[in-house]
Design a protein around this nucleic acid. Sequence first.
DNA 1: TATGAACACGAAACCGTTTTCGTTGCCTTT
DNA 2: AAAGGCAACGAAAACGGTTTCGTGTTCATA
Lengths: 366, 366
Amino acid sequence: MGFLPDLGSELSNFPLKIVKQGLNIWSLKAKITLKDIARELEVSISTVSKALKNSEEISRDTKEKVQAFAKLYNYKPNNIAISLKNKRTKNIGVVIPDIVHHFFTTVIRGIEKYANARGYNVIVCLSEESFDKEVINMEMLANGSIDGFIMSLSSQTQEKGDYNHLKEVTEQGIPVVLFDRITHEVECDKVIIDDELGAYQATNKFISQGKKRIALITTDDYLSVSKARTKGYWKALQDSELEADESMILKMPSMEMDEEAIKNFLNTKNPDAVLCVNEIFAVYSMRLVQQKGLRIPEDIAFIGFTDGVLSKYANPSLTVVAQHGEKMGEVSAQMLIDKVESEAEEETYQTRILEPTLVIRDSIAH
Amino acid sequence: MGFLPDLGSELSNFPLKIVKQGLNIWSLKAKITLKDIARELEVSISTVSKALKNSEEISRDTKEKVQAFAKLYNYKPNNIAISLKNKRTKNIGVVIPDIVHHFFTTVIRGIEKYANARGYNVIVCLSEESFDKEVINMEMLANGSIDGFIMSLSSQTQEKGDYNHLKEVTEQGIPVVLFDRITHEVECDKVIIDDELGAYQATNKFISQGKKRIALITTDDYLSVSKARTKGYWKALQDSELEADESMILKMPSMEMDEEAIKNFLNTKNPDAVLCVNEIFAVYSMRLVQQKGLRIPEDIAFIGFTDGVLSKYANPSLTVVAQHGEKMGEVSAQMLIDKVESEAEEETYQTRILEPTLVIRDSIAH
DNA sequence: TATGAACACGAAACCGTTTTCGTTGCCTTT
DNA sequence: AAAGGCAACGAAAACGGTTTCGTGTTCATA
C-alpha cells in the first residue's frame, strides 16, 4: 500500500460510515459502490468512475487516491448496472434438450471454455425434449438476460416443426446459433457435423471389410441428425454392389430404447454389421449378440455414434463416429460472440459443417 | 382484442413512431419499454407501470387501455432493470469441477428443474478442477450476477485447503450451498450423501457374501468423498472378523486413471471383491480380470460408486452405490432459494445428509 | 492585459423499472 | 360555501454505473 498518499485519517474511520442501512453491523461487508467512494473521498461520482478507468481527464494524484481506495475496499463494479447501461449482459443462453447425455455435455464444455475466455457467462436451460419448455425458457431469457442464444432443438420441436419462438427472437435482433439439431426454416448461424458423411464412412468401412448384411438402428426421421445418418448409410449401400434393403433399418419411435424391438430385429435379420445412431443402442446390441454366442467383430461388427465413456469402456470397446462436441461448442460460441460484438448489422448467416472422424476400436476388425 | 376501447386511431400509426433510433427500420421489432407505452398513450410512466400491475390506484379505463396496448405490442419487462431495482437477479450460480461427468450432470438437472419451477435461471461455471478458475468464476458472478451459489469444490481447492474465496462471498451476504465435495471450514448450508455409510454397506455386502479379500480402489484422501468412502470401507472390515489390511487399498494420485497401477494392484493382491470409488475404475478393472479369465461375480465381485450409464451398460452390469445426484441438486436448490428469499437474517446453517442406496446388478451375486 | 488553451473536475442525462409522495379535480358533507 | 375525502394520476428518487458536456482554474502567449 505504498501509494496511499495522505489518506490515513480519512480511511481510518471509513468502515463506520459506510455500513449500509444498519443491517448486519458485525461482519457483513456490504459491497462498496462508486457513490460510497465518491462520498468518502469528497469527489464526484464521475471523477471516481473516470479515475478507475485511468482516464486522461483525471490528475495523477486523484487517480492514485481513488484507485488505492478502491483496491483497499475491494471495489468491483456491479455487473447488473453495467448491463443496463450498455445493453450488453455478457451472458449467453444455452438451451438444450438434455444434459444427462455425453454429447451435449461436451458441447457445453466447449461453449463454456470459449465463452469464459471472452468474458462471457453461460446460462444453461433444459428443454427436456419438450416444445413448451423450450419456448418458456427462451422467453425468460430473451427479456434482457442474455446477449444471444446457442441451442439445439428439442425432439418435440422438430416433430412439430413450429419455430415461431426462434423467429421472434431473431426478429428482435437477438443472435441465435443452432447446433446439431437444427432447422433450415430459421435464418441464423448453424453448426453441424456432417452426419451423412459420418454414416457414409462408417458404412463403407463395413463394406470394405467384406460385411454383407449391414443393418442400421436409428430413431424416427423427425430428428434432423437421424435423417442425415440414415441418408449416409443408404447412400453408401447404393454406391456399393450390395443391395440396400429397407427392412435392414430399425427405426425406434422415441429416444427411449425398446429392448424387445432390438432383440427381435437382430434375431430375425441376422446382420453381420450394425450401425447405430448412438452409443446406447450399440452397446446394448453388443450385449445381446454376445449372449447368443456371436463373436465381435468376427461374426458381427458394430459402429456407433458419439464418442462417450460408454464406447471407450464397453467390452469390446466400441468403434464410433466421433462428433467432436467440444469443438462444436467452441465454434458455436465463437460464431455467436462474434455476431454479438459486431457492430455491423450484417444479414449474412453461415452454416459451419464439421467433419466427423471414425474412432477405431475393437468392435470392428483392424 | 374486443377490449380495445377507442384506441383505433392511436394504434394505427404507432409502428412508425416507435421505431428506435432509426436502426433496422425493416423487420427489427425493437423491444418496447414502459416509456414507449407512456408516450404513445400520453400518460406517465408510473401510470403504465401501475396499470400493468393492476394497481387499485388506476382507473378501469386506463388499465384496460394500457394492458391491451402492452399485449398488442408484446411488452415484457426488462429483467436487467428489474434486477437492478430489486437487487435480485433470479439467477443462481453453479460452480462445479467438471460437467462431462454423469454425477454432476444429474445434479445440474436437479438444480435446473427445481430452480426453474421457482422462476430462477442457472448459470453454470466449470472450475475444471482448478483452484484459480474456481476463484475467477466466483468473482465474476459475485458482482451482482447471481443471488447465490451452489457449488462442489474442485480437487485442487480441496488439496490446497484454501477457502477464502468462499468466505469472502458469504461475508458479503451471498448465500452458498456446498454439495458433495464440501469443506467444514466454511459456514454455509451443505448437502452430501452419506458416503461413509454407502461404502460401509457395500463392503458389508461383500462380507455377507463370504468374500475374504476385499480391496478398495480410491483416489487420494484430499477429496472429501474419497476420504469418507475409505472410512466406511475400513469400518466395515473392522466390524467384521476379517482383518483390515492397508495394502488392500489402492490410492490413485489423481482423478485420471493409471491403468498400470490398477493392473499391478489386482495381479499382486488377488482380491475376490473390489470396491471402487467411481464407475470408471470399476469397469476398467472388470475388463482386466475378465481378460485374465476370472469370472464375475463368482471369482471376483465388483461394486462402484455413481449410478451412471457405464454401470448400467457394462458387461456384466455393475452394482453401484447410487448417489442420487438429481435429488441432491433439488435439495441444494431448495435450500439456496429458501435462504435467498428469506428476509430473516438467520445465521443458522444446516447439513442435509442423503442416504445412498445400493443398486444391485450382475457384478455381484444375487 | 486580454485571450485562449489545457487541465481537472462536476452536473446531469441515461439505461428501464419500482415506489413513494405529492397534486390535482371532483364530490360529499355540514 | 368552506372543508374534507377520495379517486386518479404524475413527478421524482432510487438502483449503480457510463458518458457527454459544461465550467472554473491556471498558465503561457500575443
